[in-house]
Design a protein around this nucleic acid. Sequence first.
RNA 1: GGCGGAGUAGCUCAGCUGGCUAGAGCAGAGGAAUCAUAAUCCUUGUGUCGGGGGUUCGAGUCCCUCCUCCGCUACCA
Length: 522
Amino acid sequence: MASSRFYITTAIPYANGAPHIGHAYERIATDAIQRFMRLDGRDVLFVTGMDEHGQKMQQTAARDGITPRQLADRTAAQFERMGDVLNARADDIVRTTQERHYAASQEMWRRMAANGDIYLSKYPGWYSVRDEAFFDEAELTKGQDGKNYAPTGAPVEWVEEESYYFRLSAYQDKLLAYYRDHADFIVPDKYRNEIVAFVERGLTDLSISRSTFNWGVPVPGDDRHVMYVWVDALTNYITATGFPDADAPRAEYWPADVHVIGKDITRFHAIFWPAFLMSAGLPVPKQIVVHGFLFNRGEKMSKSVGNVIDPFTMAEHYGVDQMRYFFLREVPFGQDGNYSHEAIVMRINADLANDLGNLAQRSLSMIAKNCGGIVPTAGAFTDADKAMLAEADALAHKARAAMHDFALHTMLADIWRVVAEANRYFASEEPWRLTKTDPARRDTVLYVTAETLRNVAILAQPVVPTAAAKLLDLLGVSAEARAFAHVGAAGRLVAGAALPAPGPIFPRYVEAEEGGSAPAKP
RNA sequence: GGCGGAGUAGCUCAGCUGGCUAGAGCAGAGGAAUCAUAAUCCUUGUGUCGGGGGUUCGAGUCCCUCCUCCGCUACCA
């Protein structure tokens, strides 16, 4: 089924620095979406990458006494480990220094040039040789000698660097038409509005090459220039599909369905990227999905404030599923969010350990003790049973509706509403009292509870994959019966099936004693 | 300055195209139960829905205005 393909990417982090919590958040969110789509039967390609070129890479590498290549390798390894640790591994990682990426970038360039959109001109401005950077006139200060100085204190001179330009101005109307015809191209609307307003004010042509350094993709036909880092970086998304080989195994995945990005880079993705693609005669991605930033107790993370939290430390301290659940449940997707130790512990204990973990434990251990460790046989369903099952069965539909808007937090709220209902159901049916009076009725209650847990676990897989898998194991659900298609009547537990011995799904978070050896609490 | 978001119970937030006594979760208080990870269930309070004005039979929900916070953007000098 060709139409079932789903290609999703994260932004490609810059290899200049180690992974931080924002990278972890983006990877987790994107992974949850791609797992959702996979479980819903889509043929998914999930790609991330590493942006390894540019002047900053050269500078940082020089400072550390290594080559840019070594710096890129070091950072790429850190990000790869992050993907593993967060249980959010992509199908492919495009590094912009790879040969396949040079081929893709240079072909993009050639096509844009062939379309008449690239021309050579001068890039005028105040240039600091020491900083290897241009500065805006407003940033400069006059020295006592009457000369201009950069904010860094370095002298600047007026230069006109030769640069290739992209005719971005020619795409203003086409972009606006595209935004108009594709109302969901940029979500949430807030960012769409900003982009439309920006484009309506007018676009100027874009300098897309540099000749003051050489750590980049060479411009085809002019080795004195390397491509501007964003031209090369954005192209990674199409490199992954095998471009320019039209017969590549993944060629059909283009155009991408979703680029998940942070709000600071919307302009590059919503303006430059579609313009480049239009120029090259290639289809434009279907959606740019923008997420917000995470703040530590309302403060932006910064090294000087000392509130930077390492995602590896966090995962180790709280648990990977717990961290994934917290970020996706607590932060309305698309908005900025806050995290704090207290808030994370609250979610872990209240939602995961108490509401879901404990319900699974109490019901499954009753089955183990009273029903011989097999799925009990259900008798005739009461209205309460039917209502409980109907709520659980409705989850797939609700989750899809939420996911249509990438409202992961809403999806989780819907799932946990069913968990809360299941706790109420269990408490009011009091199966533990029925053992003496009506064991058949008890078995029915336990069956309905187990069925509810099965549906909950299936839907929770995208967010808490490990714990959900464990719960499904305990319910005796085979690996082939865990897709969303098995939610509801299509996948009911079969009475008599043997179940493994129950065990905890989500442990409670217990505050470590002062001076303990646990990882530093954020 | 312009555009766009946001301002709703202690905290985090829902409240679509205006309509019953404004909701949920968490936290707090009281109670029940004891199958379970001292978990669960029940009951319970509080809100000038940022301020003010207006439209309407009726407004968090529409209009005007003001205040505060945030984002994008522009500009003066």
